[in-house]
Design a protein around this nucleic acid. Structure first.
Length: 804
RNA sequence: GCUGAAGUGGUGGAAUGGCAGACACCGGGGACUUAAAAUCCCCUGCCCCAAAAGGGCGUGCGGGUUCGAGUCCCGCCUUCAGCACCA
């Protein structure tokens, strides 16, 4: 045993990190002999600011699980990589005239060094980087497969266009309707873009949720986002002779339709412009709508606006009544058919619209007062004013009307999804080139697989062109190519893929990261898939998490991966807020830099605090004083070396506490209740201090339990005291249930639910025996003071309640 | 407006319908020290009482269920996050 030294985290942490690097003992084993465990964190975007205190929250949590699983005998793949394409890097490159690849390399190196300082047990030998051509070769390959199966197509879609900078902007760059950089006006400009048909997978993505174990709020949010609804499409006839098809979830209310609303972009507006008496007004409204972003159009609480198409009317197919047709920007071309029938009596938005514009309101479901408010209850109402539907319940009416519409050929049952197809084009440089060529003879032609990766060319200038094309469009040498099909002159696609592309399949590449022939071998995929546990932020629930499920399910359908779903389990961490309780941001000046905390307190204390600060799934404000408290705890653990007793084994008076800690810590880690697990270890250490001594066995158990959270200090103490081989190689401790059984337990004595005393009772006292036992008790006699008990309740081990 | 989450001491937070405030932070007191820091020990929800003993009040608000409610039900209020008025 060496001399006692002060706890010096800087030296200890460096030593063990170097040891893990050299031995690779935390890396996944290539053998498939052991059962596998694949935990995953969302790989970071390597921003110029470096790591913030939010990253280590998720990382430490999964590191704890990963380290525990290794001790439980699993072969663990805990990978790390970088999601390195993206806007901030590109903007930085433009501003500073540096190639984005250079910036990316600097940032990745910085991130890696910061992550290593925190002692995460990542397998760095499997690192991936989405900007590496050897990686994005396979991103492009997946795109080609999607194209092959008809899931990639081109469509006219609006982009945000700054009229002053003359560039396309991301939603994020549009703040309050104006350009974030110059404050210029932003309009929506239509451009032909690549789309992915995620809507074809809507039902599969809903059904897949039943096969996995996601926390409830994630499944709920994905289901709501996909938004399956069942209703009907119905044809109305216009006075122009056209059929106007609408989608409705309430076909039962068809008799109550008193007007129609179509989207301002609806083709019928353009088609019949000479029949529309107030066309100038309509055109002005349409132009105003075009200027608005989807968000503004759908912004709530805003006043309903709209314009009647004068000169065109629609006929209600059931009543034969002619009703007016309006345009309004709250109806979007992208959902349903871009047209609705309005039933103001039973839809709140329609009701408001009708009130504002003085349109008639006809009650067709009895039960409310439709002049006062829309009546939307679909459980209680009975049909009225609805011809053959009268007297039916809403449910019956729905079925009857759909059957009727189908019979007459004017409508049909229809399932709709809120989910929209995925706009896959960006007018940017720093993304994966889309491997497609436009040929005047053959149309869009995919590159041959053997020509992948299609690398990004070196350009001088990364600024988008002022006509909305990607910077790549200026690279005529690169753009002009030959058609892979006919060999004639052709042009490359110059838009690039969105950042979501690389992150939609990165967990597959980790499995076989150096494979040049395929994105991963089936043999490895079969062993490692699915990801057993994926932790990430709630903000990625409806985009990244859904997109990657979509790609994975597609790859399954073409036989490229062996599982339907990529992730078995999904959990989520809460955000770390600034000490003022607000979101951390540079502008608020409340950002905490993890490097500074590690410098002052060490990585172990930092990790400990990240896990101790509060409930893992809740947003928590950062308090550096709290982190100092965690360092104090580690100091106390360190000092236990000076309190070593001669005895070995677990002493009798500590058996309960030690085993209680094993049980509680083991269970709490699994449920991500890290804060209470740590509290339990603090309690154990407090007990050891009270006693003033600790055996080697007791200390070894504590170090083992603490190791996943604070891996450096625990390995160092284990080694310094020669307690055994490295903790990473030792099995996870098992609770001795017998040690938790006690002869007597303290229970509370209550009168009418109020605590009036405490008493020790045999721990095996049952409900049946309790009455007799307590009747003989002095304390109970005293409390009763002659009163007659009406009822006696014993909760074993908890309390005895006397109702008088 | 919709959806989701949450309101508990001075602070962060604990609590399968069963002793509210575990574990920490801050603060106070003591020991050690020439002294300070660090460390160790003790106290620390609020109110009444000189103190103790002993009461009383307490988990956003108002009701309810229950022997018993932070927890369950109904109705409000507030805060945070997300959002695509989805017919």
């Amino acid at each position: 045993m060496g001399m006692y030294k002060e706890y010096n985290p800087a030296a200890i942490e460096k030593k063990w990190q170097a040891h893990w690097d050299e031995t690779g003992c935390l890396n996944a084993e290539s053998s498939h002999a052991k059962p596998k465990f694949y935990p995953l964190i969302e790989f970071p975007y390597p921003s110029g600011q470096g790591l913030h205190v939010g990253h280590p929250r998720s990382n430490t949590a999964m590191d704890i699980i990963a380290r525990k699983r290794r001790m439980e005998g699993y072969n663990v793949l805990f990978p790390i990589g970088y999601d390195a394409f993206g806007l901030p890097t590109e903007n930085y490159a433009i501003k500073n005239k540096i190639h984005p690849a250079v910036v990316t390399k600097q940032n990745v190196d910085h991130f890696r060094q910061q992550l290593k300082r925190l002692g995460f047990s990542f397998d760095y030998s499997r690192e991936v980087n989405t900007t590496d051509p050897a990686y994005y070769k396979w991103t492009q390959w997946i795109f080609l497969k999607l194209w092959e199966k008809g899931l990639a197509y081109k469509s006219e879609m609006p982009i945000n266009w700054c009229t002053s900078c003359k560039v396309g902007l991301a939603n994020e760059e549009v703040v309050g309707g104006v350009c974030e950089r110059c404050g210029g006006e932003v309009i929506r400009k239509v451009k032909s873009q690549w789309m992915l048909k995620i809507t074809a997978y809507a039902q599969k993505l809903i059904d897949g949720l039943d096969e996995v174990n996601f926390i409830e709020k994630v499944s709920t949010q994905q289901r709501n986002w996909i938004g399956r609804s069942e209703g009907a499409e119905v044809d109305f006839t216009l006075t122009t002779g056209d059929k106007l098809r609408v989608y409705t979830t309430r076909p039962d209310t068809l008799f109550g339709a008193t007007y129609m609303v179509i989207s301002p972009e609806h083709p019928l507006v353009e088609k019949h412009k000479d029949k529309i008496a107030n066309y100038a007004e309509v055109a002005a409204y349409r132009e105003a709508a075009a200027r608005k972003s989807d968000f503004e159009r759908t912004e709530l609480n805003k006043d309903k606006t709209g314009v009647e198409l004068k000169g065109i009317r629609a006929t209600n197919p059931l009543t034969g009544t002619q009703i007016p047709v309006w345009i309004s920007d709250y109806v979007l071309m992208g959902y349903g058919t871009g047209a609705i029938m309005a039933v103001p009596a039973h839809d709140e938005r329609d009701w408001e619209f009708a009130k504002k514009f003085g349109l008639p309101i006809i009650e067709v479901v009895a039960g409310g007062n439709v002049q006062e408010a829309a009546y939307t209850d679909i459980q209680a109402g009975t049909m009225v004013n609805s011809g053959f539907l009268n007297g039916m319940s809403v449910r019956e009416a729905k079925k009857a009307i759909i059957d009727y519409l189908a019979e007459k050929g004017i409508g049909e049952r229809k399932v709709n999804f809120k989910l929209r197809d995925w706009v896959f084009s960006r007018q940017r440089y720093w993304g994966e080139p889309i491997p497609m060529v436009s040929c005047p003879c053959c149309g869009w032609v995919p590159l041959k697989e053997s020509d992948l990766p299609l690398k990004l060319p070196d350009v001088e200038n990364y600024e988008p062109t002022d006509d909305g094309e990607s910077p790549l469009a200026q690279m005529t040498d690169w753009v002009n190519t030959t058609c892979p099909k006919c060999g004639g002159p052709a042009k490359r696609e110059t838009d690039t893929m969105p950042q979501w592309a690389g992150s939609s399949w990165y967990f597959l590449r980790y499995i076989d990261p150096h494979n040049d022939n395929e994105f991963a071998s089936m043999d490895e995929l079969k062993y490692w898939l699915p990801v057993d546990w994926y932790n990430g932020g709630m903000e990625h629930t409806t985009l990244h998490l859904l997109y990657s499920r979509f790609w994975h399910r597609f790859l399954y359908d073409i036989g490229a991966v062996p599982t339907k779903e990529p992730y078995l389990k999904r959990t989520s961490h809460g955000m770390i807020l600034g000490s003022n309780g607000e979101k951390m941001s540079k502008s608020r000046g409340n950002v905490v830099n993890p490097d500074e905390v590690v410098d002052e307190l060490g990585a172990d204390a930092f990790r400990l605090y990240e896990m101790f600060m509060g409930a893992f799934d809740q947003a928590i404000p950062w308090q550096t004083d709290g982190a100092r408290g965690c360092r104090r705890f580690l100091d106390r653990v360190w000092k236990l070396q000076t309190m070593l007793a001669d005895a070995d084994g677990i002493s009798k008076d500590m058996a309960y506490d030690v085993n209680q800690a094993i049980k509680k810590v083991s269970e709490d880690y699994e449920q991500m209740k890290f804060n209470t697990a740590i509290a339990q270890m603090m309690t154990l250490v407090n007990r050891m201090y009270q006693k003033g001594s600790v055996t080697r066995t007791e200390l070894a158990v504590l170090l083992q339990l603490l190791n996943p959270v604070a891996p450096h200090i625990t390995e160092e103490m284990n080694q310094a005291l020669s307690l055994g081989e490295e903790l990473v190689r030792r099995p996870w401790p098992v609770c001795d249930e017998k040690a938790l059984v006690r002869d007597e337990v303290e229970v509370a004595l209550q009168i009418n639910g109020k605590v009036r005393g405490r008493v020790m009772v045999p721990s095996d006292l049952t409900r049946e025996n309790a009455e007799e036992y307590f009747k003989g008790s002095e304390e109970v006699k005293k409390l009763l003071d002659g009163k007659q008990p009406k009822k006696l309740i014993y909760v074993p081990g908890r309390l005895f309640n006397i109702v008088v």
